[in-house]
């Protein structure tokens, strides 16, 4: 059985769709952790695009980039979750709508 190859453009479209889902989620969800998960989804959508392009262009740079993005995303998650914990301790909520001591 021959498995038909999926053209690279499909993966790029997948990346774009995931990115859009991430953006919409980050803008509409109200729980800080879910917002953060949507942001992680955006980063992973970028990773999908990078890997596709890297393979398509036959260049190693894209794959290298993905390693750095993953490392940075891990560091960001560590800092972000610490901020959420501290926020919950001082406010007892992580709903971003209720975090409004300062505006205008």
């Amino acid at each position: 059985m021959i498995i038909p190859t999926v053209p690279p453009s499909c993966y790029l479209v997948l990346g774009a769709i995931l990115f859009t889902i991430g953006v919409i989620g980050a803008l509409t969800r109200r729980n800080a952790i879910v917002v953060f998960m949507c942001i992680e989804l955006m980063l992973n959508a970028v990773n999908v695009s990078f890997i596709t392009l890297s393979r398509f262009l036959n260049s190693p740079h894209g794959v290298m980039f993905v390693f750095f993005v993953m490392a940075v995303a891990a560091a960001e998650a560590a800092v972000g979750l610490a901020i959420f914990v501290q926020l919950y301790r001082t406010r007892e909520t992580i709903n971003v709508d209720e975090i409004n001591l300062m505006k205008w």
Binding site: V35, G80, I83, Q86, V96
Partner: peptide, 11 residues
């Protein structure tokens, strides 16, 4: 306020 500012900047 400091935590709130960190949260907003982070997100």
């Amino acid at each position: 306020k400091s935590i709130e500012s960190a949260l907003k900047y982070f997100l």
